[in-house]
Amino acid sequence: MTRVEFGEGVGRAPVAGPARVLHTRADYPSLHDGDIAVVGTPDTELVLWLDRLAGIVCLTGTAESHLAMLAAEADVPCLMLRSVGEEIVDGCQLVLDPAVGELRIAQA
């Protein structure tokens, strides 16, 4: 089963990968190459990890936010969600399409 959420996208190319839910900056070292980071309120330290990420899903902010601009500069697709119907579970498969502002979430 797949759930779809919508938001403001930054970037053009769709990406897929496992969700890595980051609650605090202490979670950042758990990031693996190809992860899609899911963050509530990001801090500036996330910038140090952009080279590992396939994409970013942010639960706050807009496409004009600092994070979105830095992600665009690093060529990392980013989606700023308007709202989330249900929690995104760590490790679930995501497909992020920033061009249409869509996040597909594979659910078990």
Results as ranks from 00 to 15, higher is better:
M1G: 12
T2M: 14
T2P: 11
T2A: 12
F6G: 05
F6P: 00
F6T: 15
G11L: 05
R12Q: 12
R12G: 03
P14H: 05
P14R: 09
V15Q: 00
V15T: 00
A16G: 10
G17W: 00
G17C: 04
G17T: 15
P18T: 13
A19R: 01
A19N: 03
R20K: 14
R20N: 08
V21G: 06
R25D: 14
D27K: 00
P29E: 05
P29T: 11
S30L: 14
S30N: 06
H32Q: 15
H32T: 04
G34Q: 02
I36H: 03
I36G: 06
I36N: 03
A37Q: 05
V38Y: 01
V38N: 00
V39S: 10
V39M: 01
G40Y: 09
T41P: 00
T41K: 14
T41L: 14
P42Y: 03
T44G: 12
T44F: 13
L46R: 05
V47C: 10
L48S: 12
L50K: 02
D51E: 10
D51A: 05
A54R: 04
I56R: 04
V57T: 15
V57M: 02
V57R: 02
C58W: 00
C58I: 11
T62R: 13
T62P: 02
E64C: 08
E64M: 12
L67Q: 04
A68W: 05
L70F: 06
A72P: 07
E73I: 10
E73L: 15
A74R: 13
D75I: 06
P77Q: 04
P77S: 08
C78I: 01
L79G: 06
M80P: 01
M80R: 13
M80S: 11
L81P: 04
R82L: 08
R82C: 03
S83F: 01
S83E: 12
G85K: 06
I88E: 07
G91N: 03
Q93F: 14
L96V: 07
L96H: 07
L96Y: 02
A99S: 15
A99F: 06
V100L: 05
V100F: 07
E102N: 02
R104P: 11
R104Y: 05
I105K: 07
